[in-house]
Amino acid sequence: MTSITHKSIDLQSVIEAVQSPKCGAIDVFIGTVREQTKGKAVLRLDFEAYEPMAIKEMQKIIDRAHAQWPIEKMTIVHRVGSLAIGEVAVVIAVSTPHRAASFAACQFAIDTLKETVPIWKKEIFEDGEVWVAAHP
């Protein structure tokens, strides 16, 4: 299951979505808004997504993870809009029978999300704003 939300993400509901009696492990990645980048104070982050394609690309990540690890359930939820310092931007949860696979699948998912899913974030500073990773 994947989704894009404009509201704050309920962590407990994401975890509950992957719980299964077949599993001995749930790994959760939570991406949050950091207060600085390269020593410069960040006021907030603005996220936007090409939503229908972002949902499809997140589902592709889940499908690829299922092909590599014995995953019982996996969920990715990404938030868009204006986020304050400390707020949660993305949550990935995965359940597997044993822990090694859930750690590996979760890392694969966040690393791939950052490369393929059409979501963009803009860092807002006191003296300007920058689209993250836009320029080499």
């Binding site: 991406g31 996220f47 997504a49 090409y50 394609m53 972002a54 990404h78 931007a89 993305v90 966040i110 999300l113 950052k114 490369e115 393929t116 899913v117 059409p118 979501i119 963009w120 974030k121 689209w131 993250v132 990773a133 836009a134």
Partner: peptide, 10 residues
């Protein structure tokens, strides 16, 4: 048709 500049989710 949608232009996709460098993505930066997460």
């Amino acid at each position: 048709v949608v232009l996709i500049p460098p993505v930066s989710g997460g």
